[in-house]
Structure formats: structure tokens, C-alpha cells
């Protein structure tokens, strides 16, 4: 599988699923991919602790996640009832393993 990177999906604003209803089409950028290459000693130590049972019932992750490190600027659009609306930080601009 591919390493963590920025992917693109063209959707309508309505398809974003967060209340806004508009037929305007936009590119939604998201982060996806492998992060194994970015594992640190931290991850190995944590994994070992969990295996030894030193950390019980703990959800701490011992694997980096592919997440946005920056978001695109605000997006403004005209919704289907002809009001201009703004969405902040909904589309990734850059990704990283964190």
C-alpha cells in the first residue's frame, strides 16, 4: 500500500455531510496511506508496555496516524437557498504521520 499522502475526491457540498446543502462541486482533499515508515522508539516502547501488561485497559496508540498537518483556506460557496456560507478547515492541505 501507498505511503501517507494527500488524496482528492470531487464531491458536491451536500455530500460533505455537514449540514450544508449546495450543488456546488469542490475537491475534497484528505490524508490516507501507510505510516509504518515513521515509527519511533516511542511506538516500540509503548507496544512493549502494552504487551507486558504494564499498561492495562489503555487505548494509547503505538502506530503513527496519517493526518492533515495543514488545512486548506476557508471555502465559501452559495448554498441552494442562495445564501453564501463558509466552511473552515474541512479539506487537508498537507499530510503527515503523527
Amino acid at each position: 500500500s501507498k505511503p501517507c499522502s494527500l488524496r482528492k475526491l470531487v464531491v458536491t457540498v451536500s455530500q460533505l455531510g455537514i449540514a450544508f446543502v449546495s450543488d456546488e462541486t469542490i475537491a475534497f482533499h484528505y490524508c490516507s496511506g501507510e505510516c509504518d515508515a515513521s515509527r519511533k522508539n516511542y511506538d516500540f516502547v509503548l507496544e512493549a508496555m502494552k504487551k507486558k501488561g504494564l499498561l492495562r485497559k489503555n487505548k494509547a496508540r503505538h502506530r503513527p496516524c496519517c493526518r492533515p498537518t495543514a488545512y486548506e483556506e476557508d471555502f465559501l460557496f452559495l448554498d441552494n437557498s442562495f445564501q453564501y456560507k463558509t466552511i473552515h478547515e474541512f479539506s487537508a492541505k498537507a499530510c503527515g504521520c503523527i
Binding site: 470531487v10 450543488d23 456546488e24 462541486t25 469542490i26 475537491a27 460557496f77 452559495l78
Partner: peptide, 9 residues
């Protein structure tokens, strides 16, 4: 709307 789509992309 088509023109807006073209612009947004």
C-alpha cells in the same frame, strides 16, 4: 452552476 464547478476545480 457548471461555471461554478469549473471555477472551484
Amino acid at each position: 452552476l457548471d461555471a461554478t464547478k469549473a471555477c472551484n476545480l
